[in-house]
Design a binder for these strands. Structure first.
Lengths: 231, 231
DNA sequence: CGTCAACGTTTTTTCGAAACTTTGCAGCGT
DNA sequence: ACGCTGCAAAGTTTCGAAAAAACGTTGACG
Protein backbone atom coordinates (compact mmCIF):
# COMPACT_ATOMS: atom_id res chain seq x y z
CA UNK A 1 0.00 0.00 0.00
CA UNK A 2 0.93 3.59 -0.52
CA UNK A 3 3.59 2.54 -2.98
CA UNK A 4 4.03 4.84 -5.92
CA UNK A 5 4.20 3.31 -9.34
CA UNK A 6 7.34 3.14 -11.40
CA UNK A 7 9.55 0.60 -13.02
CA UNK A 8 8.83 -2.78 -11.44
CA UNK A 9 11.73 -4.11 -9.42
CA UNK A 10 12.67 -7.69 -8.70
CA UNK A 11 10.80 -7.71 -5.42
CA UNK A 12 7.64 -6.62 -7.20
CA UNK A 13 7.81 -9.61 -9.50
CA UNK A 14 8.15 -12.08 -6.68
CA UNK A 15 5.42 -10.31 -4.76
CA UNK A 16 3.07 -10.39 -7.73
CA UNK A 17 3.80 -14.01 -8.50
CA UNK A 18 3.39 -15.11 -4.93
CA UNK A 19 0.16 -13.22 -4.55
CA UNK A 20 -1.24 -14.62 -7.76
CA UNK A 21 -0.31 -18.15 -6.72
CA UNK A 22 -1.99 -17.77 -3.36
CA UNK A 23 -5.15 -16.18 -4.73
CA UNK A 24 -5.40 -18.72 -7.53
CA UNK A 25 -5.06 -21.53 -5.04
CA UNK A 26 -1.79 -22.90 -6.33
CA UNK A 27 -0.49 -22.43 -2.82
CA UNK A 28 -3.02 -23.85 -0.39
CA UNK A 29 -3.85 -22.06 2.87
CA UNK A 30 -1.71 -23.13 5.80
CA UNK A 31 1.23 -24.34 3.73
CA UNK A 32 4.65 -23.38 4.95
CA UNK A 33 6.61 -21.10 2.64
CA UNK A 34 10.24 -22.14 2.77
CA UNK A 35 12.80 -19.85 1.27
CA UNK A 36 14.57 -22.65 -0.54
CA UNK A 37 11.40 -23.64 -2.41
CA UNK A 38 10.41 -20.10 -3.22
CA UNK A 39 13.88 -19.33 -4.38
CA UNK A 40 13.61 -22.09 -6.92
CA UNK A 41 10.00 -21.38 -7.88
CA UNK A 42 10.60 -17.73 -8.73
CA UNK A 43 14.29 -18.07 -9.48
CA UNK A 44 15.43 -15.27 -7.20
CA UNK A 45 17.45 -14.74 -4.07
CA UNK A 46 16.48 -14.93 -0.42
CA UNK A 47 16.36 -11.20 0.23
CA UNK A 48 13.80 -10.44 -2.45
CA UNK A 49 11.64 -13.33 -1.32
CA UNK A 50 11.85 -12.13 2.24
CA UNK A 51 10.70 -8.65 1.38
CA UNK A 52 7.87 -9.87 -0.83
CA UNK A 53 6.67 -12.06 2.02
CA UNK A 54 6.86 -9.14 4.41
CA UNK A 55 4.55 -7.17 2.16
CA UNK A 56 2.11 -10.03 1.88
CA UNK A 57 2.18 -10.43 5.64
CA UNK A 58 1.26 -6.80 6.06
CA UNK A 59 -1.55 -7.36 3.61
CA UNK A 60 -2.82 -10.30 5.58
CA UNK A 61 -2.29 -12.99 2.97
CA UNK A 62 0.52 -14.72 4.83
CA UNK A 63 1.42 -14.91 8.50
CA UNK A 64 4.84 -14.81 10.05
CA UNK A 65 6.33 -15.87 13.34
CA UNK A 66 9.92 -15.00 14.28
CA UNK A 67 12.33 -17.80 13.53
CA UNK A 68 9.52 -19.96 12.23
CA UNK A 69 9.16 -18.62 8.77
CA UNK A 70 6.13 -17.62 6.79
CA UNK A 71 3.05 -19.56 5.79
CA UNK A 72 -0.07 -18.90 3.79
CA UNK A 73 -2.80 -17.57 6.05
CA UNK A 74 -4.98 -20.40 7.30
CA UNK A 75 -8.73 -20.33 6.99
CA UNK A 76 -11.27 -20.88 9.73
CA UNK A 77 -14.98 -20.39 10.19
CA UNK A 78 -14.44 -17.90 12.98
CA UNK A 79 -12.11 -15.84 10.86
CA UNK A 80 -14.52 -15.94 7.94
CA UNK A 81 -17.22 -14.54 10.19
CA UNK A 82 -14.88 -11.78 11.36
CA UNK A 83 -13.89 -11.02 7.82
CA UNK A 84 -17.50 -10.81 6.67
CA UNK A 85 -18.31 -8.43 9.49
CA UNK A 86 -15.32 -6.26 8.66
CA UNK A 87 -16.16 -6.27 4.98
CA UNK A 88 -19.80 -5.46 5.54
CA UNK A 89 -18.87 -2.41 7.57
CA UNK A 90 -15.99 -1.32 5.41
CA UNK A 91 -17.57 -1.79 2.01
CA UNK A 92 -20.87 -0.21 2.90
CA UNK A 93 -19.03 2.86 4.09
CA UNK A 94 -16.97 3.04 0.92
CA UNK A 95 -20.05 2.42 -1.21
CA UNK A 96 -21.84 5.36 0.40
CA UNK A 97 -18.95 7.62 -0.47
CA UNK A 98 -18.74 6.10 -3.92
CA UNK A 99 -22.41 6.80 -4.57
CA UNK A 100 -22.02 10.30 -3.19
CA UNK A 101 -18.85 11.25 -5.06
CA UNK A 102 -18.84 9.05 -8.17
CA UNK A 103 -18.97 10.94 -11.48
CA UNK A 104 -20.37 9.93 -14.81
CA UNK A 105 -17.29 7.96 -15.76
CA UNK A 106 -17.85 5.90 -12.63
CA UNK A 107 -21.45 5.23 -13.62
CA UNK A 108 -20.37 4.22 -17.10
CA UNK A 109 -17.72 1.82 -15.83
CA UNK A 110 -20.22 0.35 -13.40
CA UNK A 111 -22.82 -0.25 -16.07
CA UNK A 112 -20.16 -1.78 -18.29
CA UNK A 113 -18.96 -4.10 -15.53
CA UNK A 114 -22.51 -5.20 -14.81
CA UNK A 115 -23.12 -5.89 -18.46
CA UNK A 116 -20.10 -8.14 -18.62
CA UNK A 117 -21.08 -9.90 -15.42
CA UNK A 118 -24.62 -10.47 -16.66
CA UNK A 119 -23.46 -11.98 -19.91
CA UNK A 120 -20.78 -14.21 -18.47
CA UNK A 121 -21.74 -17.82 -17.93
CA UNK A 122 -21.64 -18.60 -14.23
CA UNK A 123 -20.62 -22.20 -14.75
CA UNK A 124 -17.51 -22.94 -16.69
CA UNK A 125 -17.09 -25.76 -19.18
CA UNK A 126 -14.55 -27.73 -17.10
CA UNK A 127 -15.97 -27.87 -13.58
CA UNK A 128 -19.79 -27.84 -13.35
CA UNK A 129 -19.73 -27.29 -9.56
CA UNK A 130 -17.50 -24.25 -9.40
CA UNK A 131 -17.91 -20.79 -10.92
CA UNK A 132 -15.82 -20.24 -14.02
CA UNK A 133 -12.66 -18.15 -13.90
CA UNK A 134 -14.25 -15.66 -16.25
CA UNK A 135 -17.23 -15.23 -13.97
CA UNK A 136 -15.02 -14.79 -10.93
CA UNK A 137 -13.10 -12.09 -12.74
CA UNK A 138 -16.26 -10.34 -13.87
CA UNK A 139 -17.69 -10.58 -10.37
CA UNK A 140 -14.60 -9.05 -8.80
CA UNK A 141 -14.56 -6.33 -11.47
CA UNK A 142 -18.17 -5.42 -10.80
CA UNK A 143 -17.66 -5.09 -7.07
CA UNK A 144 -14.52 -3.08 -7.64
CA UNK A 145 -16.36 -0.78 -10.04
CA UNK A 146 -19.00 -0.33 -7.37
CA UNK A 147 -16.45 1.00 -4.90
CA UNK A 148 -14.14 2.82 -7.25
CA UNK A 149 -16.11 6.05 -7.12
CA UNK A 150 -14.84 6.65 -3.58
CA UNK A 151 -12.33 9.46 -3.57
CA UNK A 152 -10.80 8.47 -0.26
CA UNK A 153 -7.77 6.45 -1.34
CA UNK A 154 -7.20 5.19 2.15
CA UNK A 155 -10.65 3.69 2.60
CA UNK A 156 -10.68 2.32 -0.92
CA UNK A 157 -7.37 0.54 -0.39
CA UNK A 158 -8.53 -1.02 2.85
CA UNK A 159 -11.81 -2.19 1.37
CA UNK A 160 -9.95 -3.77 -1.52
CA UNK A 161 -7.55 -5.58 0.77
CA UNK A 162 -10.44 -7.02 2.73
CA UNK A 163 -12.28 -8.06 -0.39
CA UNK A 164 -9.16 -9.76 -1.66
CA UNK A 165 -8.98 -11.88 1.44
CA UNK A 166 -12.57 -12.80 0.85
CA UNK A 167 -11.59 -14.13 -2.55
CA UNK A 168 -9.30 -16.55 -0.78
CA UNK A 169 -12.23 -18.06 1.09
CA UNK A 170 -14.30 -18.18 -2.04
CA UNK A 171 -11.50 -19.98 -3.83
CA UNK A 172 -11.32 -22.68 -1.19
CA UNK A 173 -14.95 -23.09 -0.38
CA UNK A 174 -16.58 -26.20 -1.71
CA UNK A 175 -19.09 -25.96 -4.50
CA UNK A 176 -21.74 -23.34 -3.97
CA UNK A 177 -25.28 -24.33 -3.12
CA UNK A 178 -28.03 -24.13 -5.70
CA UNK A 179 -29.61 -20.99 -4.33
CA UNK A 180 -26.58 -18.93 -5.14
CA UNK A 181 -26.79 -19.67 -8.82
CA UNK A 182 -30.26 -18.31 -9.39
CA UNK A 183 -29.82 -15.34 -7.09
CA UNK A 184 -26.46 -14.26 -8.46
CA UNK A 185 -27.60 -11.96 -11.26
CA UNK A 186 -30.65 -10.67 -9.40
CA UNK A 187 -28.51 -9.82 -6.38
CA UNK A 188 -26.14 -7.75 -8.42
CA UNK A 189 -28.85 -5.94 -10.31
CA UNK A 190 -30.29 -5.00 -6.94
CA UNK A 191 -26.93 -3.49 -6.15
CA UNK A 192 -26.59 -1.66 -9.43
CA UNK A 193 -29.95 0.07 -9.43
CA UNK A 194 -29.76 2.01 -6.16
CA UNK A 195 -26.16 2.91 -6.91
CA UNK A 196 -27.10 4.52 -10.21
CA UNK A 197 -30.13 6.14 -8.56
CA UNK A 198 -27.76 7.63 -5.96
CA UNK A 199 -29.69 6.01 -3.16
CA UNK A 200 -26.74 5.48 -0.83
CA UNK A 201 -28.77 4.05 2.05
CA UNK A 202 -30.49 1.40 0.03
CA UNK A 203 -27.32 0.47 -1.86
CA UNK A 204 -25.34 0.17 1.36
CA UNK A 205 -28.05 -1.91 3.00
CA UNK A 206 -28.19 -4.31 0.10
CA UNK A 207 -24.43 -4.63 -0.17
CA UNK A 208 -24.17 -5.41 3.53
CA UNK A 209 -26.84 -8.06 3.21
CA UNK A 210 -25.14 -9.45 0.11
CA UNK A 211 -21.83 -9.83 1.88
CA UNK A 212 -23.33 -11.36 4.99
CA UNK A 213 -25.47 -13.76 2.99
CA UNK A 214 -22.55 -14.90 0.89
CA UNK A 215 -20.48 -15.52 3.99
CA UNK A 216 -23.30 -17.47 5.63
CA UNK A 217 -23.63 -19.54 2.51
CA UNK A 218 -19.93 -20.29 2.46
CA UNK A 219 -19.95 -21.28 6.10
CA UNK A 220 -22.91 -23.59 5.75
CA UNK A 221 -21.44 -25.21 2.63
CA UNK A 222 -18.02 -25.81 4.11
CA UNK A 223 -19.00 -28.87 6.09
CA UNK A 224 -15.50 -30.23 5.83
CA UNK A 225 -13.17 -28.65 8.37
CA UNK A 226 -11.05 -25.99 6.70
CA UNK A 227 -7.39 -26.65 6.15
CA UNK A 228 -5.45 -26.17 9.31
CA UNK A 229 -1.87 -27.28 9.87
CA UNK A 230 0.89 -28.78 7.86
CA UNK A 231 4.27 -29.39 9.38
CA UNK B 1 0.21 -7.12 10.92
CA UNK B 2 -0.89 -10.59 11.71
CA UNK B 3 2.54 -11.30 13.11
CA UNK B 4 2.62 -13.74 15.97
CA UNK B 5 4.70 -12.84 19.00
CA UNK B 6 7.93 -14.53 19.84
CA UNK B 7 11.53 -13.69 20.42
CA UNK B 8 12.13 -10.28 18.88
CA UNK B 9 14.48 -10.39 15.92
CA UNK B 10 16.81 -7.73 14.63
CA UNK B 11 14.27 -6.47 12.14
CA UNK B 12 11.77 -5.97 14.95
CA UNK B 13 14.17 -3.71 16.80
CA UNK B 14 14.77 -1.50 13.79
CA UNK B 15 11.08 -1.46 13.03
CA UNK B 16 10.20 -0.48 16.58
CA UNK B 17 12.88 2.18 16.76
CA UNK B 18 11.98 3.67 13.43
CA UNK B 19 8.30 3.74 14.26
CA UNK B 20 8.93 5.35 17.62
CA UNK B 21 11.16 7.98 16.04
CA UNK B 22 8.55 8.83 13.44
CA UNK B 23 5.66 8.96 15.88
CA UNK B 24 7.64 10.99 18.37
CA UNK B 25 8.55 13.45 15.67
CA UNK B 26 12.29 12.85 15.73
CA UNK B 27 11.97 12.09 12.05
CA UNK B 28 9.91 14.81 10.45
CA UNK B 29 7.29 14.02 7.79
CA UNK B 30 8.64 14.11 4.25
CA UNK B 31 12.27 13.46 5.15
CA UNK B 32 14.10 11.01 3.00
CA UNK B 33 15.23 7.83 4.75
CA UNK B 34 18.64 6.91 3.37
CA UNK B 35 19.97 3.48 4.14
CA UNK B 36 23.37 4.80 5.06
CA UNK B 37 21.98 7.06 7.75
CA UNK B 38 19.61 4.47 9.13
CA UNK B 39 22.36 1.91 9.13
CA UNK B 40 24.35 4.18 11.39
CA UNK B 41 21.43 5.31 13.51
CA UNK B 42 20.29 1.81 14.46
CA UNK B 43 23.64 0.10 13.95
CA UNK B 44 22.38 -2.58 11.63
CA UNK B 45 22.71 -3.74 8.05
CA UNK B 46 20.83 -2.76 4.92
CA UNK B 47 18.63 -5.83 4.69
CA UNK B 48 17.08 -5.43 8.10
CA UNK B 49 16.48 -1.75 7.50
CA UNK B 50 14.87 -2.55 4.19
CA UNK B 51 12.46 -5.04 5.69
CA UNK B 52 11.55 -2.74 8.55
CA UNK B 53 10.80 0.01 6.06
CA UNK B 54 8.69 -2.34 4.00
CA UNK B 55 6.55 -3.05 7.05
CA UNK B 56 6.17 0.62 7.85
CA UNK B 57 5.25 1.29 4.24
CA UNK B 58 2.49 -1.30 4.46
CA UNK B 59 1.33 0.38 7.65
CA UNK B 60 1.24 3.73 5.91
CA UNK B 61 3.87 5.51 7.97
CA UNK B 62 6.41 5.69 5.16
CA UNK B 63 6.06 5.76 1.40
CA UNK B 64 8.26 4.08 -1.16
CA UNK B 65 9.00 4.58 -4.82
CA UNK B 66 11.12 2.14 -6.81
CA UNK B 67 14.74 3.22 -7.04
CA UNK B 68 13.99 6.35 -5.10
CA UNK B 69 14.05 4.96 -1.63
CA UNK B 70 11.76 5.48 1.29
CA UNK B 71 10.61 8.63 3.03
CA UNK B 72 8.42 9.48 5.98
CA UNK B 73 4.85 9.95 4.85
CA UNK B 74 4.15 13.59 4.13
CA UNK B 75 1.21 15.40 5.63
CA UNK B 76 -1.42 17.40 3.81
CA UNK B 77 -4.77 18.92 4.58
CA UNK B 78 -6.50 16.77 2.00
CA UNK B 79 -5.02 13.62 3.46
CA UNK B 80 -5.97 14.67 6.96
CA UNK B 81 -9.58 15.07 5.83
CA UNK B 82 -9.49 11.63 4.24
CA UNK B 83 -7.95 10.15 7.33
CA UNK B 84 -10.57 11.71 9.59
CA UNK B 85 -13.34 10.35 7.41
CA UNK B 86 -11.80 6.91 7.43
CA UNK B 87 -11.29 7.01 11.17
CA UNK B 88 -14.79 8.21 11.87
CA UNK B 89 -16.25 5.32 9.93
CA UNK B 90 -13.82 2.72 11.17
CA UNK B 91 -13.77 3.63 14.84
CA UNK B 92 -17.51 4.05 15.19
CA UNK B 93 -17.99 0.59 13.77
CA UNK B 94 -15.41 -0.90 16.11
CA UNK B 95 -16.89 1.00 19.03
CA UNK B 96 -20.32 -0.44 18.36
CA UNK B 97 -18.89 -3.94 18.48
CA UNK B 98 -16.86 -3.04 21.53
CA UNK B 99 -19.94 -1.81 23.37
CA UNK B 100 -21.84 -4.89 22.28
CA UNK B 101 -19.21 -7.48 23.14
CA UNK B 102 -17.08 -5.90 25.86
CA UNK B 103 -17.10 -7.71 29.18
CA UNK B 104 -16.66 -6.41 32.69
CA UNK B 105 -12.88 -6.40 32.44
CA UNK B 106 -13.27 -4.07 29.46
CA UNK B 107 -15.50 -1.75 31.47
CA UNK B 108 -13.01 -1.75 34.32
CA UNK B 109 -10.07 -0.94 32.06
CA UNK B 110 -12.09 1.81 30.42
CA UNK B 111 -13.01 3.43 33.71
CA UNK B 112 -9.41 3.19 34.82
CA UNK B 113 -8.14 4.80 31.63
CA UNK B 114 -10.64 7.62 31.97
CA UNK B 115 -9.62 8.21 35.55
CA UNK B 116 -6.00 8.58 34.54
CA UNK B 117 -6.92 10.87 31.64
CA UNK B 118 -9.08 13.03 33.87
CA UNK B 119 -6.34 13.47 36.46
CA UNK B 120 -3.52 14.14 34.02
CA UNK B 121 -2.64 17.77 33.46
CA UNK B 122 -3.32 18.70 29.87
CA UNK B 123 -0.54 21.23 29.71
CA UNK B 124 2.97 20.11 30.47
CA UNK B 125 5.51 22.11 32.44
CA UNK B 126 7.90 22.68 29.53
CA UNK B 127 5.73 23.80 26.63
CA UNK B 128 2.57 25.72 27.60
CA UNK B 129 1.16 25.55 24.08
CA UNK B 130 1.35 21.83 23.48
CA UNK B 131 -0.27 18.94 25.38
CA UNK B 132 2.12 17.16 27.70
CA UNK B 133 3.55 13.76 26.78
CA UNK B 134 1.75 12.24 29.74
CA UNK B 135 -1.58 13.60 28.57
CA UNK B 136 -0.99 12.36 25.05
CA UNK B 137 -0.24 8.89 26.37
CA UNK B 138 -3.31 8.91 28.62
CA UNK B 139 -5.44 10.14 25.75
CA UNK B 140 -4.24 7.39 23.43
CA UNK B 141 -4.74 4.81 26.19
CA UNK B 142 -8.33 5.93 26.77
CA UNK B 143 -9.27 5.71 23.12
CA UNK B 144 -7.61 2.33 22.86
CA UNK B 145 -9.50 1.10 25.91
CA UNK B 146 -12.69 2.28 24.27
CA UNK B 147 -12.11 0.06 21.26
CA UNK B 148 -10.43 -2.88 22.91
CA UNK B 149 -13.71 -4.62 23.70
CA UNK B 150 -14.12 -5.48 20.03
CA UNK B 151 -13.55 -9.18 19.48
CA UNK B 152 -12.89 -8.81 15.78
CA UNK B 153 -9.09 -8.71 15.63
CA UNK B 154 -9.11 -7.62 12.05
CA UNK B 155 -11.22 -4.54 12.60
CA UNK B 156 -9.42 -3.66 15.79
CA UNK B 157 -6.05 -3.79 14.09
CA UNK B 158 -7.21 -1.57 11.24
CA UNK B 159 -8.75 0.97 13.58
CA UNK B 160 -5.54 1.12 15.58
CA UNK B 161 -3.43 1.64 12.48
CA UNK B 162 -5.63 4.52 11.41
CA UNK B 163 -5.57 6.10 14.85
CA UNK B 164 -1.80 5.82 14.90
CA UNK B 165 -1.56 7.82 11.73
CA UNK B 166 -3.77 10.39 13.32
CA UNK B 167 -1.23 10.73 16.11
CA UNK B 168 1.28 11.77 13.48
CA UNK B 169 -0.87 14.72 12.50
CA UNK B 170 -1.48 15.61 16.10
CA UNK B 171 2.25 15.57 16.73
CA UNK B 172 2.93 18.02 13.96
CA UNK B 173 -0.03 20.30 14.29
CA UNK B 174 0.65 23.67 15.77
CA UNK B 175 -0.60 24.53 19.22
CA UNK B 176 -4.24 23.68 19.74
CA UNK B 177 -6.83 26.40 19.96
CA UNK B 178 -8.34 27.45 23.27
CA UNK B 179 -11.63 25.67 22.80
CA UNK B 180 -9.97 22.28 22.82
CA UNK B 181 -8.63 22.76 26.31
CA UNK B 182 -11.93 23.29 28.04
CA UNK B 183 -13.80 20.71 26.02
CA UNK B 184 -11.21 17.96 26.38
CA UNK B 185 -12.41 16.32 29.58
CA UNK B 186 -16.09 16.92 28.91
CA UNK B 187 -15.76 15.36 25.45
CA UNK B 188 -14.27 12.20 26.82
CA UNK B 189 -16.77 11.88 29.63
CA UNK B 190 -19.47 12.09 27.00
CA UNK B 191 -17.78 9.15 25.32
CA UNK B 192 -17.41 7.13 28.49
CA UNK B 193 -20.99 7.37 29.71
CA UNK B 194 -22.87 5.91 26.75
CA UNK B 195 -20.21 3.22 26.39
CA UNK B 196 -20.74 2.03 29.94
CA UNK B 197 -24.51 2.35 29.51
CA UNK B 198 -24.19 0.10 26.45
CA UNK B 199 -25.79 2.70 24.26
CA UNK B 200 -23.91 1.86 21.09
CA UNK B 201 -25.71 4.35 18.86
CA UNK B 202 -25.09 7.33 21.09
CA UNK B 203 -21.49 6.33 21.78
CA UNK B 204 -20.78 5.87 18.08
CA UNK B 205 -22.41 9.16 17.19
CA UNK B 206 -20.36 11.04 19.76
CA UNK B 207 -17.11 9.36 18.79
CA UNK B 208 -17.69 10.21 15.15
CA UNK B 209 -18.35 13.82 16.05
CA UNK B 210 -15.30 13.88 18.32
CA UNK B 211 -13.02 12.65 15.56
CA UNK B 212 -14.42 15.01 12.95
CA UNK B 213 -14.28 17.99 15.30
CA UNK B 214 -10.70 17.28 16.27
CA UNK B 215 -9.70 17.02 12.62
CA UNK B 216 -11.48 20.27 11.77
CA UNK B 217 -9.71 21.95 14.65
CA UNK B 218 -6.35 20.69 13.46
CA UNK B 219 -7.02 21.86 9.92
CA UNK B 220 -8.11 25.33 10.99
CA UNK B 221 -5.11 25.67 13.31
CA UNK B 222 -2.53 24.56 10.78
CA UNK B 223 -2.41 27.86 8.93
CA UNK B 224 1.17 27.24 7.94
CA UNK B 225 1.41 24.94 4.94
CA UNK B 226 2.26 21.42 6.03
CA UNK B 227 5.70 20.03 5.32
CA UNK B 228 5.98 18.96 1.72
CA UNK B 229 9.17 18.06 -0.06
CA UNK B 230 12.82 17.67 0.75
CA UNK B 231 15.18 16.35 -1.80
C1' DC C 1 8.76 -47.75 29.72
C1' DG C 2 8.87 -42.89 29.83
C1' DT C 3 11.52 -38.65 30.20
C1' DC C 4 15.22 -35.73 29.36
C1' DA C 5 19.48 -34.08 27.39
C1' DA C 6 22.68 -33.64 23.68
C1' DC C 7 23.68 -33.79 18.84
C1' DG C 8 23.04 -33.07 13.83
C1' DT C 9 20.12 -31.29 10.35
C1' DT C 10 17.18 -27.96 8.38
C1' DT C 11 15.66 -23.30 8.01
C1' DT C 12 15.73 -18.68 9.13
C1' DT C 13 18.26 -14.58 9.83
C1' DT C 14 22.11 -11.58 9.26
C1' DC C 15 25.70 -9.38 6.80
C1' DG C 16 28.78 -6.89 3.45
C1' DA C 17 29.95 -6.14 -1.16
C1' DA C 18 28.98 -6.06 -6.20
C1' DA C 19 25.70 -4.42 -9.81
C1' DC C 20 22.43 -1.42 -11.43
C1' DT C 21 19.65 2.98 -11.51
C1' DT C 22 18.94 7.57 -10.71
C1' DT C 23 20.51 12.26 -10.09
C1' DG C 24 23.42 16.25 -10.58
C1' DC C 25 26.97 18.54 -13.18
C1' DA C 26 30.07 19.88 -16.66
C1' DG C 27 31.19 20.30 -21.45
C1' DC C 28 29.92 20.78 -26.13
C1' DG C 29 27.18 22.24 -29.94
C1' DT C 30 23.50 25.09 -31.79
C1' DA D 1 21.97 32.12 -23.97
C1' DC D 2 19.70 27.63 -24.30
C1' DG D 3 19.43 22.72 -24.80
C1' DC D 4 21.40 18.26 -25.34
C1' DT D 5 24.76 14.51 -24.43
C1' DG D 6 27.87 12.14 -21.66
C1' DC D 7 30.39 11.53 -17.24
C1' DA D 8 30.77 11.15 -12.13
C1' DA D 9 28.71 10.56 -7.62
C1' DA D 10 25.23 9.00 -4.58
C1' DG D 11 21.98 5.66 -3.43
C1' DT D 12 19.18 1.65 -4.09
C1' DT D 13 18.71 -3.04 -5.28
C1' DT D 14 20.47 -7.63 -5.70
C1' DC D 15 23.07 -11.52 -4.37
C1' DG D 16 25.25 -15.57 -1.98
C1' DA D 17 27.51 -17.13 2.00
C1' DA D 18 28.23 -17.14 7.05
C1' DA D 19 25.95 -17.12 11.64
C1' DA D 20 22.08 -18.10 14.74
C1' DA D 21 18.08 -20.42 15.93
C1' DA D 22 14.56 -24.10 15.83
C1' DC D 23 13.34 -28.85 14.88
C1' DG D 24 13.80 -33.87 14.85
C1' DT D 25 16.42 -37.82 16.28
C1' DT D 26 19.15 -40.59 18.91
C1' DG D 27 20.88 -42.28 23.07
C1' DA D 28 21.22 -42.52 28.03
C1' DC D 29 19.26 -42.36 32.53
C1' DG D 30 15.63 -42.73 36.11
Amino acid sequence: MLVKEGIPTRVDEVYAGLRADILAGRLTPGTRLKFAELRGRYSTNVGATREALARLAAEGLVTSAPHQGYRVVSLSHADLADLAEARAGMETQVLRLSVRDGDMAWEAALVAAFHVLERTRLIGPDDPDRPSDAWNAAHAAFHDALLRGCRNRRLLTMARALRQEGELYRQWSVSLGGRARERATADHRELLEPALARDADLAAERLGAHIRDTARLLISCATDAPAEEER
